[in-house]
């Protein structure tokens, strides 16, 4: 496995590889999100109880689910970075943190905007909402730690430890609706067996969800590339790259 991974663990190869896939994945993201959002807003049927406010579902659920996904990804990267001193893993953890913070923030805002008309309140301190808020604080803490050090290696170490400690919050978010009485309802799509949705409501969701997945990939690549070159700025290949590109 290490042999196979070796060429990808090379910062230069990774930098050029991610640069090549960005346009393709951007096109894919735009296509998926355009179809998904248009479908969600115009063609998906309104809910029998919630009417058109249900359309918030199509951005609330993907961003909320993926915010946890991003955290798990960041934690795996942090673990690799701490255990095997993989500098690329550290770079990807640093690249993921701001994206996770934005997704968590969006899930909280869209949740509030959905809760106000349906539940009757913007916010309630129930277990689901509170643990998601803590997730936002964790992302912000990780970002702050990455920026608190001049030396990227110690920054990565401090942020990595916080990331790993914060992993405990993930199962709490996921199962909060089952462990405790909450105002928030249970899972719709990700539960075992059949999703609790009609199929013509589910399709636009799949497009939106995949669109957000590739959006994360694209933004991660962009940020990952900055992290790579700032961590390798003394290497000859970076020097060549910068001098060839000139100041753009």
């Amino acid at each position: 496995m290490w042999k196979w991974l070796h060429p990808y663990a090379n910062p230069e190869t990774t930098y050029h590889l991610t640069g090549r896939i960005i346009p393709w994945f951007s096109a894919l993201t735009i296509a998926l999100l355009t179809i998904g959002i248009t479908w969600a807003l115009l063609f998906a049927p309104a809910d029998y109880q919630q009417g058109d406010s249900f359309r918030i579902f199509y951005i609330h659920v993907p961003t909320a689910t993926l915010s946890m996904g991003i955290y798990v990804g960041m934690a795996i990267a942090a673990l690799c970075s701490l255990v095997w001193q993989l500098r690329l893993a550290d770079a990807s953890a640093a690249a993921l943190a701001p994206i996770g913070a934005v997704f968590t923030f969006v899930s909280l805002v869209t949740g509030a905007a959905w809760g106000k008309p349906m539940w009757g309140t913007w916010w309630i301190w129930d277990a689901r909402l509170t643990s998601q808020l803590i997730l936002l604080f964790l992302f912000l803490g990780v970002i702050a730690l990455h920026n608190a050090f001049e030396d990227k290696t110690s920054a990565g170490k401090a942020a990595g430890i916080l990331t790993l400690v914060g992993v405990i919050n993930i199962p709490i978010i996921k199962y909060s609706v089952e462990w405790w009485n909450t105002l928030h309802q249970g899972a719709t799509v990700s539960k075992m067996g059949k999703p609790s949705m009609s199929i013509d409501m589910l399709w636009p969701f799949i497009f939106c969800y995949m669109g957000f997945v590739f959006l994360i990939v694209v933004i991660t690549c962009i940020r990952f590339r900055s992290e790579i070159i700032s961590r390798n700025s003394m290497r000859p290949w970076v020097r060549e790259l910068v001098l060839n590109q000139g100041v753009k």
């Binding site: 009417g51 058109d52 406010s53 918030i56 951005i59 609330h60 805002v109 905007a113 959905w114």
Partner: peptide, 11 residues
Amino acid sequence: MGGYGFYVWLS
């Protein structure tokens, strides 16, 4: 949006 315009467009 069936009366929910503000909330949907805000989101």
